[in-house]
Design a protein around this nucleic acid. Sequence first.
DNA 1: TATGATTAACATGTCAGACCTCTTACCACT
DNA 2: AGTGGTAAGAGGTCTGACATGTTAATCATA
Lengths: 231, 231
Amino acid sequence: MSFTPPQKPAEYAESELLNAILDGTFPINSSLPSERDLADQLGVTRPTLREALQRLARDGWLDIQQGKSTRVRDYWQEGSLATLSALAASPHHQSPDFVAYLLEIRLLLAPTYTRQALEAASSQIAAFLKGADLRSGEPAAFAAFDWELHHKLTGYARNPIFQLLLNGFEELYAQMGRTYFSFEECRSESQKFYRRLLECAESCDLDRAENLLRQTMRGSLDLWLRLGGQA
Amino acid sequence: MSFTPPQKPAEYAESELLNAILDGTFPINSSLPSERDLADQLGVTRPTLREALQRLARDGWLDIQQGKSTRVRDYWQEGSLATLSALAASPHHQSPDFVAYLLEIRLLLAPTYTRQALEAASSQIAAFLKGADLRSGEPAAFAAFDWELHHKLTGYARNPIFQLLLNGFEELYAQMGRTYFSFEECRSESQKFYRRLLECAESCDLDRAENLLRQTMRGSLDLWLRLGGQA
DNA sequence: TATGATTAACATGTCAGACCTCTTACCACT
DNA sequence: AGTGGTAAGAGGTCTGACATGTTAATCATA
């Protein structure tokens, strides 16, 4: 049994605003009420509200300019990876298949960063893979392990942009991972993949690793497209 | 003749802090001074400082927890695309070749999003390319056009993640674009590319477009690796 | 001596209220 | 029609007080 702390006023304000943006109360390109009114409505003080607004603006949801009403940005066009997970989780958007889209991006990037990672640190990656403990069969454990693996791979890659980029997917990855790994077939396919990747890491076979990633990431996508309808 | 407005206190505080992080005054994993001290040192008030801190935290630079000193995060490992352009522009980091890294990522992503874009909107893309006016030969004009092209392509792509992802590169793209297009050879190669892409858009040849992007993006990377030493 | 409880110091989080600066619409004057 | 001034409404910042969370030190008890 665990308890969650009550939401702090700034957190509360931020999530209320975000919900209001996503549910269409404040649609794209609309103006928010004045900070004074909004703070009043939300039951927080203006400085507290402003902290929340600054955070939302930095993520790409809002455009704040002195002397003008704060505007809701077109978060599909002007958004960032920071807006992505909120969009993916929102019940107010006829959800595009975010799992498939994420897998598609991963298919494009993972072979290259894996190659670079093995080039730099194959024994460390092998050690990590050897330490894998997925006997519980819990989807959450698979999702966490998979994330950790890709995070490590991008961290070892020569191009630092891979990791910065992957970090932007952390929340979405966690959400989507639990869905994806809820299927037994997805879990067992992943276990095969980890074993094969371990072999590549131990033998330092870069070409084989790259191809393995390409096949496996494509396989994941195909598998999801087949199973996705049942989610 | 144009004037730039004076920096507002919150902006000033934010950029001073960011500089202090990047120049090692506040290194990774160090604690910042207390908000009260920091506000004093910076000559702004605490609420103002807090706004700046919230923004920096949301970008991935800081970890703020009530009751504990604010910590500088490992922005290489825990950072985001929002930290990327600051890192690329920082004189304090023995600069990895960010242009090459950016071009490498683009090589991986652009063929797919271009294909998807042409699938969805080839006449609009053709119209955009026809409207290209790069006669001035200015590097800035090339950089702006190239950005706009890729932004449009990602906007038309089926997978919305492409555009959200590209948005994270906007600042870096602008910085790097001016460097890349300062070379005449890069400019003329790009013009050729735009003409060929126009042909693909007009004939709706998806395979050819995808291959063109792959070759061109690889060509850009190779060209940069050759010329980059001279930058 | 070891452990648990309490307290104090220091940190961030929030509140209330006042004033400052920017934007925009409207009006008056040339 | 163009320009300048004013007022209203918006966001930006300041001052100062209080609330809540963390952690180390101290005290009490077994």
